[in-house]
Amino acid sequence: MKQPVWDLPTRLFHWLLTALIAFSWWSARFGDTDWHIWSGIGILTLLIFRLLWGFFGSSTARFANFVRGPRAVRAFLRDWTSWRLAGHTPLGALSIVAMLGAVSVQVGLGLIATDEDGLNEGPLARLVSLDASETARDIHEYWFYVVLALIVLHIGAIIYYKLFRGQKLLKGMITGRIALAPGVEPMRPAKWWVAVLCLAAAFSVARWVVAGAPPFSP
């Protein structure tokens, strides 16, 4: 019997982030820098939403319910059935935190970066020196490989679960429903209007960033 594990906002976040990261890569390589910057703003909006949803969202989205210390990770590695909550495991949590962190760093670098010719700059580039913007661009180019490595690890873990543990995590992230072992606590959903409020807050912050973060902009 399949039960709800991932709510709609979490799934939308996941797949929109997937799409925008792919588009960001494509637009950096083949497209317009303008598009790339707007894609980054979109990712920024998603990240802020996910951060808020991690505090006010459904049980499986809340950081407090899955981010655990090294002891819990070790306990989980010893006995995979010891974890009794639906959603991320303590080990998976490390991956989530790493991916959210790495993408946040990437967005932060992009916001202050300038392109090679100074034709396009991130909306916060003028808050830092030209040299800092150039350095940010250089790191931004290489940091993508950190993000990419985490994505590869993520996909590898999903394949591992499918082949060796019989868990269809991909389908779960599409339908939101996963067959849970007996005794595993299912998701407690948050109210839909909480998601609307989180999204509105995320849009507001992103808009402020696009405006150059007044009153700090020169």
């Binding site: 300038t114 090679e116 010719d117 100074g118 034709l119 700059e121 580039a125 003028r126 030209l130 020169p218």
Partner: peptide
């Protein structure tokens, strides 16, 4: 050339 262009561009965006 690039540095001069970027310096000018950044200045021109100031208030």
């Amino acid at each position: 050339i690039g540095k001069a262009f970027k310096t000018a561009g950044r200045e021109l965006k100031a208030s």
